[in-house]
Design a protein around this nucleic acid. Structure first.
Length: 333
DNA sequence: GTTCTAGAAC
DNA sequence: GTTCTAGAAC
């Protein structure tokens, strides 16, 4: 898939990544270097569609944002394609969008307003664009000041999924709306995560029909992962959400019910998949359909402290090792 | 989310 | 003595 970059035509700063389907809010602030009071801190919201090759521009601020000569209008959205020019506010701060093959996560060259004084340390290799073999987790959004408005600091562990889902090496399926990755610490023989490209922090942020469709699609993609699994005939699967997830960015767990995994180590792990802490995808969708939102019952976090109980026969076991021994008795060969 | 480890449980 | 958990730190 292509990567989208927002380029300052004034050369005021390095190109900013616009990750596929993620809403990026920009305005007056350090990312743009705009200090103009006419520009709101949340002046525009940009959402790139890297498959269709355009960016939707929504004007959030009161003063006008333009795509070419078209005024967007507060609360309104206008499609912007490569070649068109975005003026963040009035006729100022021109930007263009570029879609390019994601080679190494490096941004395209920034526009230079003028040549730097002299004695610039030139690339000794001249024109040849040598790509140093860098290691894995360099994604478009990492290592650089994020342009997003929320607390999406890449360094924080709870934001790890945001980086992992962007890494092509981790992706086992992707389409317009979602990406599937293998859980980094699988708690069973098969353990996938289905994540929407759109940044939805958690279930509390789910609203209405748009998200309903998205969740139905996520479940469908999960079912497809199960269907293509060679061990599906022998295994049972569940797909659902943790009531109170540790990792930010909403994710659907699709997990086989063998729970045969060295990464399953403690009571919290066990209870998060075998008590009502784990909410079936269909139940979440149903709640969203009926009430327009998703709520979690009080006391749900206490479920993680319940005694260890076999999810098949409900026998109580004292320790994790004894539980693991017990689970072997349920393996059907 | 994981890792590390003190000290409880055995 | 060893096994295992649970809480702090990241």
């Amino acid at each position: 898939m292509l990567t989208c970059w927002l380029i300052s035509e004034d050369g005021n700063h390095e190109p900013l990544p616009l990750p596929h389907y993620q809403r990026v809010t920009l305005g007056r602030g350090p990312e743009t270097t705009i200090k103009d009071k006419k520009c709101s801190r949340h002046q525009v919201e940009l959402k790139a569609d890297c498959n269709k090759g355009y960016v939707k521009v929504k004007q959030l601020g009161a003063n006008p944002t333009f795509v070419d000569s078209v005024e967007v209008g507060k609360g309104m959205e206008v499609k912007m394609e490569p070649g068109q020019q975005l003026h963040i506010v009035n006729q100022l701060y021109p930007y263009t969008v570029h879609f390019m093959e994601d080679l190494s996560g490096e941004p395209p060259p920034a526009k230079r307003p003028r040549e730097p004084p002299s004695g610039e340390v030139a690339d000794s290799k001249g024109a040849s664009n040598v790509k140093v073999a860098k290691q894995a987790n360099h994604t478009p959004s990492s290592g650089r000041e994020s342009a997003t408005s929320n607390n999406e600091k890449p360094g924080i562990w709870s934001n790890g999924l945001k980086a992992t889902m962007q890494d092509p090496k981790m992706q086992v399926y992707k389409d317009d709306k979602v990406v599937v990755i293998k859980d980094k610490y699988p708690k069973a023989l098969y353990h996938w995560l289905v994540l929407p490209w759109e940044s939805i922090p958690n279930m509390k942020a789910l609203r209405g029909e748009e998200h309903c469709d998205l969740l139905r699609h996520m479940q469908q993609v999960g079912q497809r992962m199960v269907a293509q699994c060679k061990d599906t005939p022998a295994l049972r699967f569940r797909s659902g959400y943790h009531a109170i997830p540790s990792m930010s960015h909403i994710h659907l767990h699709v997990i086989s019910q063998d729970f045969d995994s060295p990464a399953l180590k403690n009571k919290k792990h066990w209870n998060s998949f075998t008590t009502d802490y784990f909410i079936d995808s269909q139940d979440v969708i149903q709640m969203l359909e009926k009430t327009g939102k998703v709520t979690v019952k009080d006391g749900t976090s206490e479920l993680l402290k319940l005694p260890l109980r076999c999810h098949v026969c409900h026998k109580e076991l004292a320790t994790i090792p004894s539980l693991k021994e017990h689970l072997k008795t349920h393996i059907s060969v």
